[in-house]
């Protein structure tokens, strides 16, 4: 579903992604974890065609980026910490708008289904600006799946949610991802991500530092695996720097 080879992204002279290789098979749920500034959001923005790679090959759902960006966008849904919703429109109108942009043909029934999925049917005609942060994020999931995408990219979806809203988001995400979708999710919340993902990749200094399947997580858990990966990466970076000197 996703193939990335030697991906480089620079902002000016500053490299953020440094020759990143990454592959996701259809139906996999990959948790992408890493410290702040590791390049997670930049990477997801490239996968979602919002940003152009500086170098390297990126293939999503069988299409090359950035050349076939429109075809890629048709097969993916994106959820970030910003809901990408219009406050002056109702939940129903927001979904109608996005559904029309994606050319969803049976839109009315799809909107009802999606609102039911995210538990907002009763408030479908309320303005989104009257929603709590948690409700907006639930509606945002509805927006992301309105066109039934094969691939979901979730960038820090739990940011700003309280425990209850987070738990509700868990339930909805499990339901959404149980329908055979491929998912790549970034999060700092290792407890939540360990509950959802089937594979975990650690992104550090613009490269995948380590990767493991859920069943191969060492005894000290995901946190231990994460710390070990980051420390190893830091040591190898120091060694590389020393060699250069």
């Amino acid at each position: 579903m996703i193939k990335v080879h030697k991906l480089v992204k620079r902002f000016g002279l500053k490299p953020v992604l440094r020759g990143l290789d990454f592959e996701v098979k259809k139906g996999e749920f990959v948790g992408l974890i890493g410290p702040n500034g590791a390049g997670k959001t930049t990477f997801l923005r490239i996968l979602s065609s919002l940003s152009r790679p500086s170098l390297g090959m990126v293939k999503v759902a069988g299409f090359h980026l950035p050349a076939q960006a429109a075809a890629v966008r048709n097969s993916l849904g994106v959820l970030s910490h910003q809901p990408l919703l219009y406050g002056d429109l109702t939940a129903e109108e927001n979904l109608q708008f996005y559904g029309r942009l994606y050319g969803v043909t049976n839109l009315d029934s799809r909107i009802s289904e999606v609102l039911d999925l995210v538990g907002l049917s009763a408030r479908r005609r309320d303005l989104v600006r009257t929603y709590s942060r948690g409700m907006q994020q639930r509606l945002s999931i509805g927006r992301a799946v309105i066109h039934d995408p094969q691939l979901l990219l979730l960038d820090e979806p739990y940011t700003g949610l309280d425990q209850d809203a987070g738990a509700m988001l868990d339930t909805i995400l499990k339901s959404v991802t149980s329908q055979g979708r491929t998912v790549v999710m970034t999060s700092h919340d290792l407890v939540r991500i360990s509950d959802l993902a089937s594979r975990f990749d650690v992104l550090s200094r613009g490269k995948i530092a380590a990767s493991t399947q859920r069943e191969d997580i060492p005894q000290d858990g995901l946190l231990g695996f994460y710390r070990h990966a980051i420390e190893s990466k830091q040591e190898s970076t120091k060694l590389e720097a020393a060699n250069v000197k």
Binding site: S48, L50, Q82, P83, Y98
Partner: peptide
């Protein structure tokens, strides 16, 4: 409102 990204993703 971050909606420009929503438009660009269409």
């Amino acid at each position: 409102r971050g909606c420009l990204d929503g438009l660009l993703l269409a």
